[in-house]
Design a binder for these strands. Structure first.
Lengths: 213, 213
DNA sequence: TAGATTGTTAATCGATTAACAATC
DNA sequence: TAGATTGTTAATCGATTAACAATC
């Protein structure tokens, strides 16, 4: 009934699809089109919108422009969201330079690491000692943290973030992090996702007759 | 009933937890412990195992060593799995150097890009022209591909992979890729996951009374 | 108007959890 | 044996989908 994780993920997907449609010059859209675009049933689309009080017109579908505005308001994309990043290793450095965040209104305002050779206080996005992270979070009122430190350090970094006021975390360390339930943690475990692909590929080739080879 | 995505993800998580328990010197484990470890109900654990014919002993729980073996066999982790990577940008380069795959028996055997300055045929993991990807896949019988190219190139790269025989894909380009249903595609959309965290943080602070601030 | 599409209620489906007999 | 834990069936829960009245 409520706004569960999958519902929100779908809202974000609708928004991406709407931007693409808008870029193509479309002005209105039907639940049918939008369903096709993100691979769900049209009823699902209408149900999702109705859940958040977004309505279209009975015969004319939804106005794309207005729908985007509604979704932006809902997803909190009307102001830029500041985030910090802990761990400037492989993944961390990639995230730091990742272009995709900007268009979603997300800005990584600082990175933190324990390795002094990584520090660069004058960079556009400064890299600072991990020991300064807590103060930085408090001083700038940051709510969102990204964890890209090694597995062994992840829980400690998490605790430091939460203690200083972080409320939402995207975690790339390959373990299930735990915290009190007034903190949102979203775990992205790349190994696990790849392992999952491999499983399904192998399962497929054994179940449904081996092809070619 | 069948082995859906979430079930497999849980199996992988059990396996990680079991490795940790084993490292701590434990020999056997109960569904209760394992449930705690990955945050699910003990019944869920037993159900999952029973689904794959993994059984314990009525009074003594499960032998960790044996359980790991069972899970490895199931998840196809008994032999190394070869994968290729398309797109050596921020994310691609990070994945190329990512240490986590090795311990899961996954090896990226080659990277591909269109930028000649990225090529390095002699590197331990060679970076080759994207145009050679198809032949490489066929020649080495690769089944798993990772896509880390820009959004605009993703569908083309996907098609090239599938045409050459790739059966499973982990996609980091921020769009929902589509293919025939004998190809497994697992989309990791980092922006979307972060946006999701932000939504829930904002939703929380408005619903459950703003705290401190 | 007739036709098409929304919005919502009811039905279905699938996954999780509870209950409990079997048994170590 | 008594107590604890598995394995599985039945119940519950939640999310998706179908159906259809309202209406543009």
């Amino acid at each position: 009934m409520a706004a569960n994780r999958n519902t929100i993920i779908r809202l974000s997907k609708y928004k991406s699809a709407l931007f693409r449609l808008k870029a193509l010059g479309f002005v209105k859209v039907f639940s049918d089109n939008l369903g096709d675009a993100i691979g769900v049933a049209p009823t699902q689309v209408r149900k999702d919108f109705s859940l958040f009080g977004i309505s279209g017109s009975k015969r004319g579908g939804y106005q794309i422009e207005q729908l985007i505005e509604n979704l932006n308001a809902l997803l909190g994309k009307n102001q830029t969201e500041k985030a910090i990043l802990a761990g400037i290793g492989n993944i961390g450095a990639a995230l730091l330079h990742y272009k995709g965040f900007e268009k979603e209104g997300i800005k990584i305002v600082a990175g933190f690491d324990i390795d002094p050779s990584k520090y660069s206080k004058e960079a556009p996005t400064p890299i600072l000692p991990l020991s300064e992270m807590g103060d930085f979070i408090k001083e700038h009122g940051i709510k969102i943290g990204i964890i890209a430190v090694p597995e062994i350090a992840a829980q400690i970094v998490l605790n430091a973030m939460v203690t200083s006021g972080i409320k939402g975390i995207l975690n790339f360390a390959p373990l299930q992090l735990k915290s009190s339930n007034d903190v949102i943690i979203n775990n992205i475990n790349i190994e696990l996702e790849l392992e999952n692909v491999i499983y399904h590929v192998n399962a497929m080739s054994t179940t449904e007759g081996v092809k070619s080879n």
